[in-house]
Design a protein around this nucleic acid. Structure first.
Lengths: 206, 206
DNA sequence: GGCCTAAATTAACAGTGTTAAGTAAGTGAG
DNA sequence: CTCACTTACTTAACACTGTTAATTTAGGCC
């Protein structure tokens, strides 16, 4: 009776092997520059085998991105449970988000910079960005804390969170797509954006 | 001798016809969902004819985007020459940028949200974003004015401009790619982002 | 050993951007 | 008027792409 289980284990293994091969190629060359045939070559299976494990190329990509973004969640949750000044915690979270995006440009691009492909009723509309929504929840909680501590001008946590997300996404995505633009020193830019945004939300103390 | 000129005129006309057809299709369905063959069908020429006028699909796209972005330049330059409070002028310019992006999502996506395709020595590296660089110059000049008027905390115009651009690009691109996210009221969001960013740069007056 | 199911493969389709070779038309010279 | 030549355009083809249907291969069970 262990046969069935061994089979399942093997299936899971091959599935992971596909994910790993595809991920490596995507990271190196970008989603749209990697064909199903090349992934198949790498794992030494026929191209169509991949379709036994993933519905299509998009689902394969999605699985990979979810894998990657779970790492971001880990980082963010660690930051969230740290004690101390909520503003400092917020800033640390924002920076972590940006840095994560810059470390994983292709994954970031796929999940946040690619339009949802038209057919998006019900599940499709919520699932592809579930990683993003989770990350956004972390952000919102940080913002709640800041508001609760009376640090912010407005009590509208939703607006503040979305504003912050927009700012974060802006730097991250611009640095990814326009890496050859004459940016100021990267560290200064990142801190500049984070500090400006948070300062803009904060109450002018003194 | 007028023959040569008539021919040139006809060539220019067909070139424009290609641009128009392609632009319309791109706007409606997005760059990657429109094939050269479909563009050719629409103007009732063979697909390869397009290649007599444009080096490849990318150059065709680039021409279209430049056409579109020149409209943005016009809007921005009008705002720039308005007299009055430099802060108000800056805010108006930022909003115009965002609104333009939202009005032309496909063009915006193509010029600002698509990575430069690897081969980018010398010209390639500066040309594709020349539209963007021009727009950025407008922004920088607005920022200069604000600094000159003593409105900003820091005197670093470059950092301030890049920070602002990042913020603008963030809202714009997120609204384009994630239009189904539960955003707060759009107008409030846009003003929220603009106000927060500018407030974050401004000196805390009282 | 034969059967059956599951997994993986081959072949094919319809489409893509792009290039090389070929064709038709209109101009200028003899 | 005719021949050569240039220019504009088309046809055919290449090397890909994601994906599907039909087929083959392999492994466990009776």
């Amino acid at each position: 009776m262990g046969v069935r289980e061994r089979r399942a284990r093997e299936k899971r293994y091959l599935r992971q092997e596909i994910l790993d091969a595809a991920s490596e190629l995507f990271v190196k060359e970008g989603f749209e520059n990697v064909s199903m045939r090349r992934i198949a070559d790498r794992i030494e299976y026929s191209p169509t085998t991949i379709y036994l494990y993933f519905k299509d190329k998009a689902e394969l990509l999605e699985s990979i991105c979810q894998e990657t973004f779970s790492k971001l969640m880990q980082r963010l949750s660690k930051i969230l449970e740290q004690p101390g000044d909520p503003i400092a915690r917020l800033k640390r979270g924002l920076l972590a988000y940006i840095e994560f995006g810059l470390e994983n440009p292709h994954h970031y691009r796929s999940t946040f910079m690619t339009p949802i492909p038209e057919g998006f009723d019900a599940e499709k509309y919520i699932k592809p960005e579930s990683a993003g929504i989770q990350a956004f929840d972390f952000l919102r909680r940080c913002v709640y804390d800041c508001i609760a501590a009376g640090k912010f001008k407005s009590k509208d946590a939703e607006l503040a969170s979305q504003t912050l997300w927009a700012g974060m996404h802006g730097v991250t995505s611009l640095l990814i797509t326009h890496s050859h633009f004459p940016w100021v020193d990267r560290k200064r830019l990142l801190h500049g954006v984070v500090d400006t945004l948070v300062a803009g939300l904060q109450v002018h103390e003194e």
